[in-house]
Design a protein around this nucleic acid. Structure first.
Lengths: 237, 237
DNA sequence: TAGTGGTCTAGACCACGAG
DNA sequence: TCGTGGTCTAGACCACTAT
């Protein structure tokens, strides 16, 4: 008795056919009715698999015409995905190192109260990290996580600096989406010292609130990044 | 005979109930079976409406528990989609005005040559605009477009400052995607003067290369934005 | 006109969460 | 245990595209 949904099986089959090239870019898929017959399911089930692939921009449906594999240019790796710092910085090309500067239990700071949905005085885990790229200081990050969601995180080993992997492996928390605000600020004396820039030098300043699949806020994070390490975003129409 | 799908009607009804507060944040919706009965449709139709709202993070479904209204998160300059400046800034809430500071034909600058795929000395249209939000200077933007793609753009009326609409209406160019890099910089004397900040003040600095559906680069643009107008990005896992 | 995807029905059984 | 959302069926008619 398989516990895997049928549409998921179909999704993975079509997905791997696209990845392997068996279904080439621009190629037309069999009609939904055909696919339903081949997989021995109803058309609605096929549609659920196809919709998932459409959401990932691997397939395009054209009413009256058919379903087609998208051109590879549109399949390019999304730079706008929620990922670890190493992912974002392109860890393939550069050596990313993390220096843990502080990890402690503190009352939730004012600025994080509302985003995290915590009452004043509630405890959080505060984690301050310096990110280095090719041994050069690149970004200072401070995260606050509700203590109730990640108890004892202050004592857990942070796997290679990846907070996301740690809370997934230790607490089963999956991170699903984040709202991020990006601005600019002048380096304070403390930031300047840590990041190796002059006081008042411009930094990329950002605030991020990360949520789990049920939209519970899991992390409030601020970061300051040297301008030589810009953020890359791909925007689609 | 209505040509609007029923799930769309349900979607809009629920959507406006959420917007008006009739369905408050954290509130539980009636069950899918209930909604189906109320709207006089089958459950699958209700699910289609709810899925759409879930995709937009307005609702959260929890298996075994119910469907709930999401807590709202601040809406700022949304950057997930390629759109006009007014779109990004949320033109409903704020008055966005554009001051055209320069429009001329010039040789392609060095920095834009490779992104636009132009040989040295080729001509471009250069457009410099100041964006004001509620009459306060917010961003300085300079765009270069290959002359060959938009001949005589220097003389065409720029509809309310929307370059995108103008080149679509006059040249049939549709913009499909853009790569953007966001960083920070210190205001030069000229930028400081135009934007009303002190020289050396931090600004959000970005570079964007916009493409048409066939991936031809249509625009190379730099902009400097005051930090009170941060960019907002939603990241998905 | 033939074939495609878009919408929709009226059921069904199952997995999960809360009390 | 009971109510919820998750999955799935076997049909149907419609809107649209290509020929």
């Amino acid at each position: 008795m398989s516990r895997i949904p049928r549409y998921q099986v179909i999704y993975e089959d079509l997905s791997s056919q696209i990845a392997s090239g068996a279904l080439a870019p621009e190629a037309q898929l069999p009609s939904e009715a055909d696919l339903a017959e081949r997989y021995g399911v109803s058309r609605m089930t096929v549609r659920q698999a196809v919709r998932q692939l459409q959401d990932e921009h691997l397939l395009v449906r054209r009413r009256g015409a058919g379903t087609f594999v998208t051109r590879p240019s549109a399949q390019r790796r999304r730079l706008n995905r929620l990922g670890s710092f190493a992912d974002e910085m392109g860890a393939e090309e550069h050596r990313v190192r993390t220096e843990l500067r502080a990890r402690e239990t503190t009352a939730v700071p004012e600025e994080a109260r509302e985003p995290l949905g915590l009452a004043a005085g509630r405890e959080t885990i505060r984690i301050e990290r310096l990110r280095l790229i090719d041994d050069r200081p690149a970004a200072l990050q401070i995260s606050w996580l509700p203590y109730a969601l990640v108890p004892l995180l202050a004592r857990v080993d942070l796997a290679g600096g990846s907070l996301y992997r740690t809370i997934r492996d230790h607490y089963g928390l999956r991170l699903s989406w984040a709202d991020m605000e990006v601005s600019a600020s002048a380096a304070t004396a403390g930031q300047a010292d840590v990041l190796g820039v002059r006081r008042g030098a411009p930094l990329i300043a950002s605030v991020r609130i990360t949520h789990d699949p049920s939209s519970t806020a899991v992390e409030y994070a601020r970061s300051w990044t040297r301008p030589e390490f810009p953020l890359s975003i791909r925007l689609e129409a």
